[in-house]
C-alpha cells in the first residue's frame, strides 16, 4: 500500500462507521426492543466521525484545495458521485444536529439513512474499477456494507442507557458471523479465477494483516459477543482496529492487471 492509500483506509472506514451509526439508531428507534439512547449523541458522533473521515480523505489528494472540483464529472465518475452524496450525508448530519437534539424527528433519521446507504453503494462502485479483476464486481460494496453493519451497532452501544439491549448484541453477532464467513470464503473463490485474481487470493491469504483482521477484527469479537451476550465497552475499539486492518488489506493486497503485463492472464 502506498502512502496515498492510507488516508483512503481511514476515510472509508470512518464514513462507513457514520452510516452504520445512523442505521443502528434507526434500528433503535423502530425495533420492538430497541436500545434506549439520547438520539442526539450517536447522531453527533456520526457527524464528527464523518467529518474526520472526510478531512482524512483530503490527505490522499495531491492538491487538496482542488477537492471542491471533484464533483464536476457526475455523468460518469463514481468518485464524483461519491463525493457529492457523502457531502450531502455530512450536511444532513451537521444541519440536523440541533433538530435531532430537540425533537428527534423520524423523517430526518430516514433521510440520513437513505443518503448514507447511497453513499455506501457509490463508494463501492468507486473502488471496483476494471483494473482490479478480483473486486471489479459488487464485493467492495458488500465489504463496505459489512463495515457499516459491524461498527454501527458497536459504536451505538456506547451511547445506550443501562445494559446493552439484546437487539444490538444479536445484530452485531449475526453480522460478525456473516462477515467472518465472507472474508474467509472470498479469497478462496479468487483462487479459481484468472491469474491476477488468483494472485490476489494468494496475496490476501499470505498477508499477516489479513489473518490479524480475521482473528482480532472478526473471530475474537464474535467469541466475546457469543460468550458474554453483551458488547463490552472496549469491543468497539477492537472492531474499529479490525476494520482498519481489513481495509489496509483491501487496498494493499488487491492486485492490478498492469502488474502482470507480459505474463498469462
Amino acid at each position: 500500500m502506498n502512502g496515498m492509500e492510507l488516508p483512503l483506509v481511514v476515510f472509508t472506514v470512518l464514513s462507513q462507521t457514520a452510516v452504520g451509526i445512523v442505521l443502528a439508531s434507526l434500528l433503535g428507534r423502530y425495533a420492538a426492543a430497541g436500545p434506549e439512547t439520547d438520539p442526539g449523541r450517536p447522531w453527533g458522533a456520526a457527524a464528527g466521525i464523518l467529518l474526520v473521515g472526510l478531512l482524512a480523505s483530503l490527505a490522499h489528494l495531491g492538491h487538496p484545495t482542488g477537492a471542491v472540483n471533484a464533483v464536476k464529472h457526475l455523468a460518469t465518475s463514481w468518485l464524483s458521485r461519491e463525493v457529492l452524496v457523502t457531502s450531502i450525508f455530512l450536511a444532513i448530519l451537521l444541519l440536523g444536529l440541533p433538530l435531532m437534539r430537540r425533537k428527534s424527528p423520524g423523517w430526518l433519521l430516514w433521510l440520513a439513512a437513505a443518503a448514507g446507504i447511497v453513499s455506501l453503494v457509490f463508494m463501492g462502485m468507486t473502488y471496483s474499477p476494471p483494473s482490479f479483476p478480483a473486486v471489479n464486481n459488487l464485493l467492495p460494496t458488500v465489504f463496505f456494507v459489512l463495515t457499516a453493519a459491524v461498527l454501527g451497532p458497536a459504536v451505538v452501544s456506547w451511547f445506550v442507557r443501562g445494559s446493552t439491549p439484546p437487539v444490538l448484541v444479536a445484530v452485531l453477532g449475526s453480522v460478525l458471523l456473516l462477515a467472518l464467513v465472507i472474508y474467509l470464503i472470498v479469497p478462496c473463490i479468487w483462487l479459481s479465477g484468472g491469474t491476477v485474481m488468483q494472485n490476489t487470493g494468494w496475496a490476501w491469504i499470505g498477508s499477516p494483516l489479513y489473518w490479524l483482521r480475521i482473528v482480532l477484527g472478526l473471530a475474537l469479537p464474535l467469541a466475546v459477543v457469543w460468550k458474554t451476550r453483551d458488547i463490552p465497552v472496549w469491543l468497539p475499539l477492537l472492531l474499529i482496529a479490525g476494520e482498519l486492518l481489513g481495509r489496509a488489506v483491501f487496498f494493499s493486497q488487491t492486485l492490478h492487471t498492469a502488474g502482470n503485463i507480459g505474463g498469462l492472464y
Binding site: M4, H60, L61, G62, P64, P129, S131, H256, A258
Partner: peptide, 26 residues
C-alpha cells in the same frame, strides 16, 4: 492543470498508463 492528484485514473486504468508524479503531485 486540472488534475488534483486523486489517483483515481491510476487505480482504474487496467494498462497502468497514468502514473503519479510525486513532485507535481499529479
Amino acid at each position: 492543470e486540472a488534475c488534483i492528484g486523486c489517483g483515481n485514473c491510476i487505480r482504474a486504468c487496467p494498462y497502468g498508463a497514468p502514473r503519479y508524479n510525486p513532485e507535481q503531485r499529479k
